[in-house]
Design a protein around this nucleic acid. Sequence first.
DNA 1: TTGTAGGCGTTATCAT
DNA 2: ATGATAACGCCTACAA
Lengths: 352, 352
Amino acid sequence: MYAMSKKKYTIADIAAMAGISKGTVDRVIHKRGKVSKKAHEKITRILKEIDYQPNLVARNLKKNKTYTLYVLLPDPAKDPYWAPCLEGITAASDEFQAFGVMIDTAFFDPSSIKSFNSKCRQVLKNKPDGVVFVPLFYQEALAFAGDCERNDITLATFNSYLQEGQASSFIGQDLHQSGRIAGKLLHQLLGGDRKMAVIHVDEAFQNAIHMQEKEKGFRDYYGGLNDGSEVVTHTLPHKDIRNAGKSMQHFFKAHPDVSGLFVTTSKGYLLEGALPGTHAHIPVVGYDLITQNIDALKSGTLDFLIHQNPRQQAYLGVSYLSEYFAFDKQIPDRKLLPIDIINSENYIHYLQ
Amino acid sequence: MYAMSKKKYTIADIAAMAGISKGTVDRVIHKRGKVSKKAHEKITRILKEIDYQPNLVARNLKKNKTYTLYVLLPDPAKDPYWAPCLEGITAASDEFQAFGVMIDTAFFDPSSIKSFNSKCRQVLKNKPDGVVFVPLFYQEALAFAGDCERNDITLATFNSYLQEGQASSFIGQDLHQSGRIAGKLLHQLLGGDRKMAVIHVDEAFQNAIHMQEKEKGFRDYYGGLNDGSEVVTHTLPHKDIRNAGKSMQHFFKAHPDVSGLFVTTSKGYLLEGALPGTHAHIPVVGYDLITQNIDALKSGTLDFLIHQNPRQQAYLGVSYLSEYFAFDKQIPDRKLLPIDIINSENYIHYLQ
DNA sequence: TTGTAGGCGTTATCAT
DNA sequence: ATGATAACGCCTACAA
């Protein structure tokens, strides 16, 4: 029989034990000074002895402050990747509004720096206590983070990595490792000594760093095999997206011996019908559970998806700040989520 | 700019708006009667209008009750599968003890019904407010659930399914579907028209239902292919475990054409060195992130593991009951966790 | 340096 | 049927 919790003492209890008033105990607990050495020692000893845990409920009620958080998010209407974030935000909002945390959300256009800057100004004008945001544009995000710091606004970022520690927390994934995972999956499907292709497909330049990290991880994995495997890279730039089929045909003409594809963005579904019909099926690993990708998973165009769990990222960002304000919890400055492997049989559970 | 939270009203606010005292408002909110029709109507209308949300912090402080929960768990020392549950329990304990929830844990021997019954009696004697337990022994667990219900003890179960709804909640996985996932993985690795084997390896009979469900899912998947695939089953009973190699050799003599294995328990690592060296590598899918399996994953004996996330199951069980008592939250009567696919590159993120 | 007296929002009790 | 009041544990202001 293994007990994990113990009796709870109140400040009044401690005051009684020490033969001193509650006020003095409180001063010791909060290190406000103005306490005699004797009293300080006695109380400190008791606190240690009983491992005093303040009643957060009472503390919170007393404070009775309401905190405002802003979430700054790429518009899900412009890129469905972000849609699940709303669920996560709503869940956290429901959970913490009872504790006085109010959450507002603002969208920016993921293809417009101007839109981002404009929303940032709007958010700053509202003087929230905390901000959770996606630092899609590195320089601008850095500037915004500086503004927040100067205004004593606590920060959490997710999805994209901004900067070491500071006042800001990061929630996301190890992109390099996710590239390795993609490599492992294709290696498992195909065996060794193969020619593999990394395909970068995206409409926006902000993903460049993401894509590079993923590619590095992928190459890292295949390089480690030392079995004669080869990796080539093909980029489908912005304007070519509607001609994905054409572009891929050219690519396959130049590399007829490629036997597996790694698509570094959520645009894997574009390969539907763009792969040479003459070949047997070519295994493809992609990213993100957007509906088009799930359809492609079911139809067999895509074999595996890597899930970045945007819902959970947003949920955690909001939760961390909420718990920080409501319960004085420490904010972890780095939280890497598991890298989920998805196929046509287990995707459903991740849609929630 | 998308707002998700609204202003908060107190009972005093409402009383003032209605020109009535707080006491009457409280009576309406809690349906205690002894309120005139006129007052009732007026207050109800206001409550609806402002969508009144009681301040849970204040309510909780007022109640100021401490709740006791018991977790009844198979002894991790007897089966390492359960070890991560302790982390989950500790995490939930840390989180909720500030809200007056005390959590105790008791272990039973997973191979001894007597031990289970004895611990059950011990738990009942302590008259906790809630119990989270693993119903490993169906009949005995049913009896215990009945005892709890009679003693007004709120229940949550995890890992094994006990019974429809009632007062008890279930947290676990869709085992049938996890069998399908194993099928899909092997199918992805091997292609169609193959002979596959389901291997049941276990020391204890309590897993029988689990293993059956998983096998059904697996056969269901392969049956759906309609491509000439075949599935055979081999059971390594309790006493043969040390002779896994021998038993598997016999099996392969009878079925030399088997090209993939699905091990329905956490004992997949026993196949290390038990597979015919003459063959090329035979793909194996197993269950659970215990250290031996992870080693086997790294060495290449196992290709994929399915993660049942015992840590999260225990965490959620405790959390649900804690939130029920501390915040009057409803307990979901069924929570199916995602079925995580693990290989040698992504296991690390699931260990913590 | 120390003690005391409210008050946060909700609820239970006791008068009215 | 209704209203006033005290109490939960913590914290702050003010008095001693």
